[in-house]
Amino acid sequence: MSIIKKLALAAGVSALLSSAAYADLSGKVIGFSQIGSESGWRAAETSVTKSEAEKLGIDLKFADAQQKQENQIKAIRGFIAQGVAAILVAPVVSTGWEEVLTEAKEANIPVILLDRGIDAPQDLYLTSVASDQVKEGHVAGDWLVKTVADKDCKIVELQGTVGSSPAINRKKGFEDALAGHANLSIIRSQTGDFTRAKGKEVMEGFLKAEDGGKGICAVYAHNDDMAVGAIQAIKDAGLKPGTDILVVSIDGVPDIFQAFVAGEANATVELTPNMAGPAFAALDAYLTAGTVPEKFIITESKLYTPADDAQGEYDRRKGLGY
């Protein structure tokens, strides 16, 4: 699609939407303090937030904190000084927010947290939009339970960075889903640090240790990048990923859809980069009708399989900055 066409379409859509559902947000100034761009998913979240804002006619003030809380606090103070209508924050750490959020509250500016929670009194922010990481693991586990049905299935697990909350929660959700199904068991679990290279290396080790992979029925990776690495390791071992060994992971980045197309991966649970959509909806309801939203808005943890138009999903995502 040419840029001109894209712009025309975007303008049309935003005109349509702003005149209808979100009348009150059009023309409003909203500040967005983003953590940085440490991962593809983060970049996608930024670009989706910007495009959602554009659709609604919001004047989005974007501030990249480059992984530093002090930058975020500075940005938030700046937003307060500018008198913005609302502030979105993807907090880089969970502590140390009371002071600046109190300043926002005193200035009567609602604050919405995106994708990460904080340790602060709940009255300091309007709502928190995030995924449920335990549920993500659970959805992945449910899919595997359903897929293997009564057959025995030995699973190897590629964990995220040791001690990180997604690693802990996605492991727990997956194990919860497997509970009560004795035919499924996790036989090996190691950390792949959420990276492709480590995912591949760890999978290589698993394959060697399990008789060239003959005993492995499925690999569960805490993120798609590790799954992509594991797929390569399985191919190097002379097995067919997706067929000989099932591959299920979490995140829904474009490359996993490409693997779907190639028949090399079986399922992924999307961690949507669209945290801003629900946030804007809640904000609109709050500003127009005074409806106080739920304290925790949980985004959908949607399961995708190759049956879901993998090529189309890949095309939709590849431009988002993943």
Partner: peptide, 14 residues
């Protein structure tokens, strides 16, 4: 080598 191994350049982790 590391990029070729994973068929991609991972600037954050390579």
């Amino acid at each position: 080598i590391v990029a070729g191994d994973i068929r991609g350049a991972d600037a954050n982790n390579a």
